[in-house]
Amino acid sequence: MKRFYFYIRYLPEHVNCEFLAGKCIRILHAYQTRFNIRSIGVSFPNWEQSSIGRTIAFISESLQALTTLSQQNYFVQMAEERYFLISGVQALPGEYQYQEFIYYRERRLEKESASAIKRELKRLQSRAIQAGVDYAPKTSERGCVEIPFAHRLSFGSSSGADFLLFIGRLECEKKQLSEFSSYGLGNRSEFKGTVPCLRPLICDR
């Protein structure tokens, strides 16, 4: 099935790419949640070890869903203020053999973050109070676990709570089922939700 895409480039010379990527994903999350769809995936054409890159792209088999997403108020406002360059929605050219990636949520790193540990501690303390017992934190006995590289994005939930969203990337030999989370991410363990590498299609300037 034909896929479509559009991309956003962050225009300021000095910019926190991870912060803006988190903001864009939050808009996507709100949009897909509101309309109960999971058909749009995210891609990072300029992904590097040092940065997630100053471009974020959205891919879907639904032209209508992508067009509506590109017209969300936050995107339009940032474009009007010259913070964003937003491309038009385009069909993915069929003559290329695309490298496919799964961008996924690395929950193992999230569980190790300070905010996650604090939330878990608060939950356990509340449970102990309800049970009428004193809470004594256990010493961690977890061994060393090798976790793939992931970029860390600051993300604000609709409830007002901030947390870190860790995004990893997995290379795939071919396109897999286009099912994504509300954040536009694929599933690493189930090996689905691939998006094409758009680097050859997007000018860096």
Results as ranks from 00 to 15, higher is better:
residue 5 Y to G: 00
residue 56 I to K: 04
residue 34 R to Y: 15
residue 93 P to R: 07
residue 186 G to N: 01
residue 180 F to G: 00
residue 204 D to M: 04
residue 23 K to N: 12
residue 170 L to C: 11
residue 163 F to W: 08
residue 110 E to C: 03
residue 166 F to P: 03
residue 204 D to C: 08
residue 126 S to I: 02
residue 69 L to C: 08
residue 153 L to H: 08
residue 61 E to I: 01
residue 146 E to Y: 04
residue 196 P to K: 02
residue 14 H to Q: 12
residue 3 R to C: 08
residue 105 R to F: 01
residue 57 A to N: 01
residue 8 I to Q: 04
residue 19 F to M: 07
residue 83 Y to E: 08
residue 197 C to I: 06
residue 142 R to M: 09
residue 55 T to G: 05
residue 59 I to Q: 03
residue 145 V to C: 06
residue 2 K to C: 11
residue 20 L to C: 13
residue 182 S to G: 04
residue 23 K to E: 10
residue 30 A to F: 12
residue 200 P to C: 07
residue 123 R to F: 09
residue 91 A to C: 01
residue 197 C to N: 15
residue 19 F to N: 00
residue 166 F to H: 12
residue 132 G to M: 08
residue 197 C to D: 15
residue 26 R to V: 05
residue 12 P to E: 06
residue 91 A to Q: 12
residue 44 F to V: 11
residue 156 G to E: 08
residue 57 A to M: 03
residue 65 A to N: 03
residue 44 F to N: 10
residue 126 S to W: 02
residue 176 Q to P: 05
residue 181 S to D: 02
residue 38 R to S: 07
residue 162 D to S: 12
residue 5 Y to E: 02
residue 53 G to Y: 14
residue 122 K to Y: 12
residue 186 G to T: 07
residue 117 I to M: 07
residue 156 G to F: 10
residue 113 S to P: 00
residue 10 Y to S: 04
residue 195 V to Q: 07
residue 102 I to S: 05
residue 123 R to C: 01
residue 143 G to F: 08
residue 110 E to D: 04
residue 68 T to D: 10
residue 67 T to H: 10
residue 61 E to W: 09
residue 59 I to P: 02
residue 129 I to V: 14
residue 83 Y to N: 11
residue 14 H to A: 07
residue 7 Y to F: 14
residue 102 I to H: 00
residue 197 C to F: 15
residue 164 L to F: 12
residue 98 Y to A: 00
residue 28 L to A: 06
residue 146 E to L: 01
residue 10 Y to M: 15
residue 114 A to I: 12
residue 38 R to I: 01
residue 101 F to K: 05
residue 13 E to Q: 09
